[in-house]
């Protein structure tokens, strides 16, 4: 059961990470395209400023889970490493639970934020692109981060039980 869940989470975060990578490629293409269009044809891509912001938000949001899966969110571990096995597992259980709760609330509030932006019809200044879908994307990124943290929590609970 746990194995199946972990496999699903790994697959999902890898998939999201691939979309994140594509978004970064798109950022590069848009910026370079804008530079070339402006320099060569005096015809810049006017919405570049907005597109780059949205694409970067997509990339970062969707990469959060994969980043956590690889334990790449930096932490200070030299204190905990010196503690006994059991204490360490207990601490990890506690911090993981707190983190899941916090990011859970945060993503919920991002979704609320997106909702108000959608109701009010808020769009980006120059491109007129609606803002809310990208906030939803970031909220979803945090949701997938929580899924990863849940699998970390399961693992630390198993260590407590051992």
């Amino acid at each position: 059961m746990a194995k199946k869940y972990n496999g699903f989470v790994a697959g999902l975060s890898q998939f999201l990470d691939q979309i994140a990578g594509l978004s970064l490629v798109a950022v590069m293409l848009v910026v370079v395209g804008n530079v070339l269009m402006r320099a060569l044809f005096k015809h810049p891509i006017l919405g570049t400023y907005d597109y780059v912001g949205f694409l970067t938000a997509t990339a970062i949001g969707l990469a959060l889970a994969h980043c956590a899966l690889q334990n790449a969110h930096i932490a200070v571990d030299f204190v905990v490493e010196r503690l006994p096995h059991k204490t360490r597992a207990l601490i990890d259980t506690a911090t993981n639970s707190v983190a899941i709760t916090f990011w859970g609330f945060a993503l919920w509030n991002l979704a609320i934020y997106a909702g108000t932006m959608k109701t009010n019809g808020i769009v980006a200044a120059t491109s007129q692109l609606p803002v809310s879908p990208f906030i939803y994307l970031v909220a979803f990124g945090l949701f997938s981060l929580c899924l990863v943290l849940l699998s970390h929590l399961g693992e630390s609970l198993r260590r407590v039980a051992r």
Partner: peptide, 9 residues
């Protein structure tokens, strides 16, 4: 007005 606007902060 026929100018080329460039969007930047």
């Amino acid at each position: 007005l026929g100018a080329t606007p460039v969007a930047m902060p």
